[in-house]
C-alpha cells in the first residue's frame, strides 16, 4: 500500500506507554487511599478468622462449663464466658463465619436477581420496564427491616430464611441502580456504534452495557454487604434469624442482654465484632466508590 508512507500520526510519543485498563487505574487510586486500605484490611482479617475459626478458637463453639458461668475476661477466656459457661472469644470467632456467609451470599443473590430484572427493565423499556419498576417501587415502599420480618414470618424463623429475606429486600436497590445505569449507558455513542456495526442486542448487553455498569454494582454490593450483616444481626436479635445454639452475633446479644448488669462483656464483644466488620465493608465501599466511580459520590 503506497499511501501508507505518507500518513503520519500526530503524536507518536505514546509508543512507549504501557496499556492501562480502567480497572488497573481504579486499583492504583484505591491503593493510595489509606482509609480504604484499612477497610480492606479489616475485611480480610475477618475473612481469615471466618475461614480458620476451628483452628483459631481455643474452645469449642458449644463447649459448656457451668462452673464458670458469666465469668469476666481472663487469660483463659479473653472475652469472658456467657451464661452457659461458653467461651465468648471462640463464639465470636465462629460468628464471623455466619455473618460473612450471610452477607456475601444474600448480596450475591440480590445482585444476580436485581441485575437481571434491572437490565431487562432498562434495556427493553416499555411495559416490561413499567411493571418491573412498579414492583421495585412497591418493595421500596416498605422499610427494609419490616419487609424482612414479614418474609421471615412467612418462611419461619431460621438463619437460612433470614438470609433469603435479606436477599429479597435488597433486590430493588440493585435493580434500580442497574436500570438507571443501563439507561444512561444506552445513550452512549459507543452503543450506537455497536449497533451500527451490526451487533445483536444480546451481545451489546453482555459485552458493552454490563461491563460499563459493573463499577457502581461493585461499590453498591460492598456497601450492601455491610447493611446485610447488620440486618442479619438485627433479625437474629429479634429471634427471627439464627436459632440457638448457633453462634450468631445478633443472637448472642439477644441471649445475653438479660445478664448485662452482671456480665456486660457478654454483650460488649459480639457488638464490637459486628461494628468492626460493618465498618470494614463501609470503608472499603467508600474507597471503591472514589476509585472506580468518582461521579457516584452522593
Amino acid at each position: 500500500m503506497p499511501v501508507l508512507a505518507k500518513r503520519e500520526n500526530e503524536t507518536n510519543q505514546l509508543q512507549q506507554e504501557e496499556a492501562v485498563s480502567p480497572w488497573r487505574e481504579g486499583w492504583k487510586s484505591f491503593k493510595k487511599n489509606k482509609v480504604a486500605l484499612v477497610g480492606l484490611g479489616i475485611v480480610l482479617f475477618f475473612m481469615i478468622i471466618a475461614v480458620f475459626a476451628p483452628l483459631l478458637a481455643p474452645y469449642g463453639i458449644n463447649e459448656q462449663e457451668l462452673s464458670i458461668r458469666n465469668n469476666p475476661p481472663s487469660p483463659e477466656h479473653w472475652f469472658g464466658t456467657d451464661d452457659f459457661g461458653r467461651d465468648i472469644f471462640s463464639r465470636v470467632l465462629y460468628g464471623a463465619r455466619i455473618s460473612l456467609w450471610v452477607g456475601l451470599v444474600s448480596v450475591s443473590g440480590s445482585v444476580i436477581v436485581g441485575c437481571f430484572l434491572g437490565i431487562i427493565a432498562g434495556y427493553y423499556g416499555r411495559w416490561i420496564d413499567t411493571v418491573i419498576s412498579r414492583i421495585f417501587d412497591i418493595m421500596l415502599a416498605f422499610p427494609s427491616i419490616l419487609l424482612a420480618i414479614a418474609v421471615v414470618a412467612v418462611l419461619g424463623p431460621s438463619l437460612q430464611n433470614a438470609l433469603i429475606a435479606i436477599a429479597i429486600i435488597n433486590i430493588p436497590n440493585f435493580g434500580r441502580l442497574i436500570r438507571s445505569k443501563v439507561l444512561s449507558v444506552k445513550q452512549e455513542e459507543y452503543i450506537m456504534a455497536a449497533r451500527a456495526v451490526g451487533m445483536s442486542d444480546g451481545r451489546i448487553l453482555f459485552h458493552h452495557v454490563l461491563p460499563n455498569s459493573l463499577a457502581p454494582i461493585i461499590v453498591q454490593a460492598t456497601l450492601a454487604i455491610a447493611t446485610a450483616i447488620i440486618e442479619a444481626a438485627a433479625l437474629g436479635f429479634l429471634g427471627m434469624g439464627a436459632q440457638p445454639p448457633q453462634a450468631e452475633w445478633g443472637k448472642m446479644l439477644a441471649d445475653s442482654r438479660q445478664y448485662i448488669i452482671q456480665a456486660p462483656w457478654t454483650v460488649l464483644f459480639p457488638g464490637i465484632a459486628i461494628m468492626l466488620t460493618v465498618l470494614g465493608f463501609n470503608l472499603m465501599g467508600d474507597g471503591l466508590r472514589d476509585a472506580l466511580d468518582p461521579k457516584m459520590k452522593n
Binding site: 455491610a226 447488620i230 445478633g250 448485662i260 448488669i261 468492626l276 465498618l279
Partner: peptide, 22 residues
Amino acid sequence: ALIGISIPVFWLGLMEQWAFSL
C-alpha cells in the same frame, strides 16, 4: 461518623442502657 454508620442500633441502645441507666 464512620463508626456511626457502622454501629448496629440495637447494640448501641443496649450499651447506652447499660452505661447511663444501669
